[in-house]
């Protein structure tokens, strides 16, 4: 078999593609068919079943915010996933409340997805409502004014552009808000 495939280019091409499509289709096409939560937006109104809430589609302004977030490459340094690690739920938490673990149904409208691979700055999966707009404006002008030791670049061209700034903040404020995870409902605006 190995000897034959060694001399026959057509057999070789067939074999190489067969193995590729076997693994490729089983790991990319099949999973969303098996696991429906990949495509169904989060919705729960029964407190007995866990946190309540509903994932809404992006508004035009939030969508613009996501586009700015993408354009500036925020996602190279900030992940958006609270993983199944105790430390992640604590770090994404706020005022003594642990954040819930991120689930696929919270990200159904994300295009492009912003899960990220590198965490140079903190994870932003539950940043929505933690800081108010004024905090964000100061922070974008110069992050070190609010967080000494930060290495985030300044973004004055966003802080000084009312439309872009509002869109970006609108996007940030909705992150992690599909599930009502803060019992006191103490979200900043």
């Amino acid at each position: 078999m190995l000897n034959k495939i060694d001399k026959d280019a057509k057999l070789f091409v067939g074999g190489a593609l067969l193995l590729f499509f076997l693994g490729g289709s089983l790991t990319t096409i099949v999973p969303p068919l098996v696991d429906k939560s990949w495509g169904k937006p989060f919705e729960n109104s029964d407190p007995a079943k866990g946190l309540t809430g509903k994932l809404l589609p992006y508004t035009a302004q939030e969508k613009k915010g996501l586009a700015i977030y993408t354009r500036e490459g925020c996602w190279y340094c900030h992940t958006q996933q609270t993983r199944t690690l105790l430390a992640d739920t604590k770090r994404s938490g706020w005022r003594g409340v642990d954040a819930p673990v991120s689930t696929p149904d919270e990200f159904v409208y994300d295009q492009p997805h912003m899960f990220g691979t590198k965490r140079t700055g903190p994870d932003l999966s539950h940043v929505g409502g933690k800081y108010d707009a004024q905090w964000h404006r100061t922070h974008f002008r110069n992050p070190r004014d609010l967080v000494p030791g930060s290495i985030m670049p300044p973004f004055p061209w966003i802080a000084d552009n009312e439309e872009e700034f509002n869109a970006l903040v609108a996007y940030l404020q909705r992150l992690g808000r599909a599930k009502n995870w803060r019992p006191d409902n103490d979200y900043e605006k």
């Binding site: 790991t27 990949w38 994300d110 492009p112 997805h113």
Partner: peptide, 16 residues
């Protein structure tokens, strides 16, 4: 293919 997908589904194609 990533242009026609969103969220985790897109991420899965992206990581592939």
């Amino acid at each position: 293919a990533t242009m026609f997908t969103t969220g985790v589904n897109q991420a899965n194609l992206n990581w592939m």
